[in-house]
Structure formats: structure tokens, C-alpha cells
Computed example of a mutant assay.
Amino acid sequence: MEKVMGLASENGLVIFSKSSCCMCYAVNMLFQGIGVKPVMYDIDQDPEGREMEKALMKLGGTAAGPVPAVFIGGKFMGSTNEIMSAHLSGQLVQMLKPFHHSMS
């Protein structure tokens, strides 16, 4: 958990993913479409990936798995469903404003 939280707090927008995860790619593209480039951590490429996966499941992994796990400002925001819901309601842009000065 310590490594996950440390990496999550190093940057404004962090997505923990797996290199083969299509939903991770979709969430990444959503953020890029808004104009924000997330920092991506592929847990399947990390030697501590299994421990990171367990920590992400404890934070709120779903039946679909622990990724994508999105952190904004070091705070766990959820996975695909939570991010898409926040985007559709307009809340996602508001959450991202501190990390992207040119967003309107």
C-alpha cells in the first residue's frame, strides 16, 4: 500500500494499469481528450506488481480487477465506472482544474 500511495501522490493525475487492459487505455484516452496527460503505472511491469495489485483491490478494486485505478491529487477516485460517471456529470473537469491551467 505504501508504494501505491507514494506513487499516487507524486503527480496530479495517476492511473495504475496493466499493459493489456483495454479499459485502462480507454480511461487514459478520456483524460487526454479532456487535455490532461495522466502518469501511467503498469503494475504488470513492476517487480512489486502483485503487492500493488493487492493494495489496489483493498482500495476499491472491482470484480473486473484492480485496474484502472485513478488517483487525482493523491486521492483514490475509483475505476472506470466512477470516472465515466464523473465525466458525464461534469464533475471530472472540475476535479482536474488544479492540474491543468488552461481548462475552462
Score class of each variant (00 low, 15 high):
43 I>Q: 11
8 A>D: 12
42 D>R: 09
12 G>Y: 11
9 S>Y: 14
86 A>P: 04
20 S>A: 08
28 N>W: 07
13 L>E: 00
26 A>R: 15
43 I>T: 11
98 P>H: 02
25 Y>Q: 14
80 T>F: 15
100 H>G: 00
85 S>A: 14
99 F>R: 00
2 E>S: 13
38 P>Q: 11
89 S>A: 07
78 G>I: 06
92 L>F: 10
74 G>F: 03
93 V>W: 07
32 Q>W: 02
54 K>R: 14
82 E>Y: 02
102 S>Y: 13
14 V>Y: 15
84 M>Y: 06
70 V>K: 01
89 S>V: 06
63 A>K: 06
13 L>Q: 00
66 P>I: 07
52 M>Y: 08
72 I>C: 08
19 S>H: 09
72 I>Q: 05
35 G>R: 09
71 F>C: 04
16 F>D: 08
27 V>W: 09
51 E>C: 00
50 R>Q: 14
37 K>G: 03
93 V>S: 01
72 I>M: 07
88 L>H: 07
95 M>A: 09
20 S>W: 15
87 H>Q: 04
84 M>N: 02
96 L>I: 12
75 K>E: 08
37 K>C: 07
64 A>G: 10
52 M>I: 12
88 L>P: 00
2 E>L: 13
19 S>R: 09
71 F>Y: 10
90 G>D: 03
37 K>H: 11
17 S>V: 14
80 T>G: 03
40 M>E: 10
37 K>A: 11
38 P>I: 12
80 T>L: 09
38 P>N: 10
99 F>E: 01
2 E>W: 07
35 G>K: 08
45 Q>R: 08
8 A>R: 11
64 A>F: 13
71 F>W: 05
7 L>H: 09
15 I>Q: 01
22 C>K: 10
65 G>F: 11
23 M>V: 12
27 V>N: 05
45 Q>G: 00
59 L>E: 07
97 K>Y: 06
6 G>I: 10
95 M>C: 05
102 S>G: 03
75 K>Y: 01
102 S>K: 06
39 V>H: 13
70 V>S: 02
47 P>A: 10
37 K>Q: 12
69 A>R: 03
44 D>V: 12
43 I>F: 13
62 T>D: 02
82 E>V: 05
8 A>W: 15
90 G>V: 07
48 E>A: 11
13 L>G: 00
64 A>S: 14
34 I>W: 04
28 N>H: 11
40 M>F: 12
83 I>Q: 05
45 Q>F: 13
20 S>K: 01
98 P>I: 04
103 M>H: 03
35 G>T: 12
90 G>E: 06
84 M>H: 01
12 G>C: 10
2 E>H: 09
16 F>C: 08
44 D>N: 14
31 F>G: 01
70 V>T: 03
83 I>N: 02
34 I>K: 00
47 P>K: 08
39 V>I: 14
97 K>F: 04
26 A>Q: 13
30 L>F: 10
43 I>Y: 13
83 I>W: 07
41 Y>G: 00
16 F>A: 09
7 L>C: 09
11 N>F: 15
99 F>L: 01
